[in-house]
Amino acid sequence: IRVTEDENDEPIEIPSEDDGTVLLSTVTAQFPGACGLRYRNPVSQCMRGVRLVEGILHAPDAGWGNLVYVVN
């Protein structure tokens, strides 16, 4: 998935696990201090948080898609 520190920055590609999840530790390896991800909902244009359970980030209902995710 494509992740950036700010919406206007160049994104970095972060690998997902075989089950489609992303480990928070993978994100923090590239973005120290990150505690989660958010993205701009293409329909509402509002920022939406990615579900985080026990250090594992779960894809939105429509999958990770071609969105750019921003670190929290």
Rank of each mutant, 00 (worst) to 15 (best):
A34V: 04
N41M: 12
S44R: 07
V3C: 09
D6F: 15
P60C: 04
D9P: 05
V70K: 08
V3Y: 01
E10T: 10
A59E: 10
I56S: 09
E5T: 09
A59W: 02
V27R: 00
V22A: 06
E13K: 08
P11G: 10
H58S: 08
Q30D: 03
L52C: 13
L37H: 01
N66G: 08
E17W: 04
I1G: 00
G33F: 08
D6M: 12
A59M: 07
G63Q: 05
P32Q: 05
L67Q: 12
N66E: 12
C35I: 14
C46N: 08
A62G: 14
R38Y: 13
V50P: 03
V53M: 09
I14G: 01
D9M: 13
G33M: 10
N72C: 14
T28L: 09
C35A: 12
E54D: 10
G33N: 08
S44H: 07
A62N: 10
T4Q: 08
W64C: 01
N8W: 10
Y39P: 01
S16R: 15
I56C: 13
C46V: 13
I14Q: 00
P11Q: 04
I12G: 01
R51W: 05
A29E: 13
A59T: 06
N41Y: 08
D6R: 09
L24T: 02
V43G: 15
G36N: 01
D61M: 10
P32H: 05
I14C: 06
Q30N: 14
D9L: 14
D61F: 12
Q30K: 15
R48S: 15
S44N: 15
V50M: 00
V22I: 07
I1T: 00
E10P: 14
I56Q: 07
A62V: 11
V68L: 14
P11W: 10
H58E: 09
A29M: 11
A62R: 12
C46D: 15
D6S: 14
A62W: 09
W64G: 02
I12H: 08
Q30V: 14
I12K: 14
G49C: 15
W64M: 02
E13I: 10
V50I: 12
T21C: 07
Y69C: 02
E54F: 03
P42T: 07
D6K: 10
H58R: 07
Y69P: 05
P60D: 01
M47C: 08
V50S: 00
V53G: 05
M47Y: 14
L24N: 03
T28D: 14
R51M: 12
T4Y: 00
P15I: 09
P11F: 09
T28C: 15
R38E: 15
P32T: 06
P60H: 01
N8K: 11
N41I: 08
L24D: 03
H58L: 11
I12V: 14
P15E: 09
A62S: 13
R2Q: 07
Q30Y: 15
V53I: 11
T28M: 13
D18L: 14
G20E: 05
S25I: 06
V43R: 08
R48C: 15
R48H: 15
E13T: 12
E54G: 13
M47D: 04
C35P: 02
A59H: 05
R40N: 06
C35W: 06
P15N: 14
D19N: 03
P60L: 04
V71C: 08
T28W: 10
Q30A: 14
T26K: 15
R48Y: 13
H58Y: 11
H58N: 06
M47G: 04
L24E: 01
V70P: 03
Q45N: 15
I12W: 03
L23C: 09
L67C: 15
H58A: 03
L57K: 00
V27K: 03
E54T: 07
L24I: 04
A29K: 14
R38I: 08
T21P: 02
G55C: 02
L23K: 15
E10K: 09
R40M: 14
T21R: 06
N8C: 09
Y69L: 01
Q30P: 04
I14E: 00
L57D: 01
V43A: 10
P60R: 02
P42R: 09
R48I: 15
R51Y: 07
V3D: 00
T28R: 14
G55V: 01
Q45S: 11
A59Y: 03
G63F: 12
I14P: 03
M47V: 12
Y69Q: 05
P15F: 06
G63E: 05
I12S: 03
V27N: 00
S44V: 05
M47E: 10
P11L: 02
E54H: 12
V70F: 11
R2F: 15
A34E: 01
C46W: 05
P42S: 09
V53W: 09
V43Q: 11
V71P: 05
G65P: 06
V22E: 01
Q30L: 12
N8S: 11
S25E: 12
P60S: 00
